[in-house]
Amino acid sequence: MSTATGYNFAYLDEQSKRMIRRAILKAVAIPGYQVPFGGREMPLPHGWGTGGMQVTASVIGEADRLKVIDQGADDTTNAVSIRRFFATTAGVETTESTAAASLIQTRHRIPETPLQADQILIYQVPIPEPLRFIEPRETETRKMHALSEYGAMQVKLYEDVARFGHIATSYDYPVMVNNRYMMDPSPIPKFDNPKMNRMPALQLFGAGFEKRIYAVPPYTEVKSLDFDDYPFEVQRWDENCAICGSDHSFLDEVIIDDAGSKMFVCSDTDYCRSRQTNATESATATEETLS
């Protein structure tokens, strides 16, 4: 493991941090709008969370407690790698507990445990532009945002309805923020979209190689796009978590043998573990009461 000698607190130099901090303040003032910023190279590859890392590096302080998740889990390799990076370069305390964290950097999930006021959720974003796959040109999509010209997205979603009888987008599902800007929620499953709405925590989004930062302040309205006759709906499973028994969390499908048998487990490892602990405790309590 490398040491961080010779680098500034949290890796970035102070001038870069100030530039990013100014961009974050603008992002917060214009919810859902993508603020261009002078993205720096980070010592991890682009697309591996450098945008989220630059935001974290600019926000984090000695008093913070950091949690990093990828796919909902604290122990996935990239989450481990990013958590180590900040433990080494900033020397901050890290945690796997959602409730105990002041900053949570995430890729692809929002924790199942509801976030609270004064927590900050930092999303890693690969492609920040929700309209990018409809219109590849930045000059055009900027105009579309300026004019709130979002008809093309409605058409795209409705084509799904015509073809499949459903909106077929299952993750990276576009939202409207504060009834003004269309925003890409990053590739979280649409299961997590409702958690963004009026969340008490501050949500910050960093796209490193696209050099964009955007934000959703606490208690801001975030609405997933839909149609009156085809309302937004989230994924559901027939199964429960094989470990904690949860019937309401997002489940990963795990193939357990060559025959392709599978089981379903919570993607949020901290949530799953805390449910197990609670179950054990209440079981113990029950036993004690009985004995």
Partner: peptide, 12 residues
């Protein structure tokens, strides 16, 4: 950093 966090809270 501390003053920035105060400003971030104020602005958000």
């Amino acid at each position: 950093q501390q003053v920035f966090r105060a400003l971030l809270k104020a602005m958000s």
